[in-house]
């Protein structure tokens, strides 16, 4: 074999049908004069066929439905793994436990942490912040005493403060045309820096949250995407460096109308 004139590479290419036509005659002539090499390549070919015989039947097996299912954003994915839970949530839960804000909130958070249902599978991509947005919605909208950190009667300060912390001017859209008034907002830690959450409420006590995160530049702009988990509907989108998620216990059509208003107002600034 040490006197082999044909490169080993060419023998494999010949076997795999990837040798240029002009080189084929030379290989054939070489093998005709070297029966031991011919035997080796015959064995290789036989192995290749055996591998195909062994595994080709898998191609014809029916594909399990769960493999065909699209995980996000349109369909709820597999349960969120523990390590996918956003860090701020744990920090928040720990902080609140120390602060003993209220017995009911503590209980609520405890329940959330244990039973938080399946939302989106992957943090760290476009849908990652949505997961956090939905959690933040679920955590703060039921809160009676402190749903917001800064209330709407200090809107100017709220917006200035959030803008400063986020590092870009942001403002709270007006949703009174839809019956929702700004309650206020809060700042939350997020994967890509501070995040703003605005909360709105209508006359029936129904609450919406708008989650605004910066640092989405790695992701492409998206159109509106919709996600529903339990009773919470979410529209989310990415616009330049900002990721937005509008969450509410509304049906898709109602939330969609509000979402358009939000988008229009934000794009005017």
């Amino acid at each position: 074999m040490s006197t082999q004139r044909i490169p080993e590479t060419d023998l494999h290419a010949w076997l795999d049908g990837q040798l240029p036509v002009e080189d084929q005659a030379e290989v054939a002539a070489y093998l005709a004069g070297h029966p031991e090499e011919q035997a080796r390549l015959d064995a290789y070919r036989q192995h290749k066929q055996q591998i195909q015989t062994l595994f080709d039947p898998v191609i014809h097996e029916p594909v399990p439905e769960h493999l065909r299912r699209r995980p996000a954003p349109d369909v709820v994915a597999a349960p969120v793994s523990r390590d996918a839970r956003p860090r701020w949530f744990l920090q928040l839960a720990a902080g609140l436990a120390i602060a003993v804000v209220s017995g009911s909130l503590g209980w609520f958070l405890h329940g959330q942490a244990l039973t938080q249902p399946a939302l989106l599978s992957d943090a760290g991509d476009a849908s990652g912040f949505v997961h956090q947005a939905v959690l933040a919605h679920a955590v703060f909208t039921p809160e009676v005493k402190h749903p917001v950190e800064v209330s709407a009667d200090q809107e100017a300060q709220l917006v200035k403060w959030l803008s400063k912390r986020i590092g870009s001017p942001i403002h709270a859209p007006r949703l009174s045309a839809h019956g929702f008034d700004l309650m206020g907002g809060r700042l939350l830690p997020g994967e890509t820096g501070p995040v703003a959450q605005f909360m709105y409420q209508d006359s029936s006590g129904q609450r919406l949250t708008l989650y605004v995160t910066k640092g989405q530049s790695a992701n492409r702009d998206t159109g509106f995407r919709f996600l529903k988990e339990g009773k919470v509907s979410v529209f989310y989108w990415i616009d330049g460096p900002f990721g937005y998620a509008l969450s509410g216990n509304l049906d898709r059509a109602d939330l969609s109308r509000i979402c358009n208003t939000v988008y229009e107002q934000l794009s005017q600034t």
């Binding site: 062994l54 595994f55 898998v58 594909v63």
Partner: peptide
């Protein structure tokens, strides 16, 4: 999307091996 779904049987065959 269809193209992606159509690749599943091949992915399964390779993964099995």
């Amino acid at each position: 999307h269809e193209r992606l779904l159509a690749c599943i049987p091949r992915l399964r065959r390779y993964a099995r091996a």
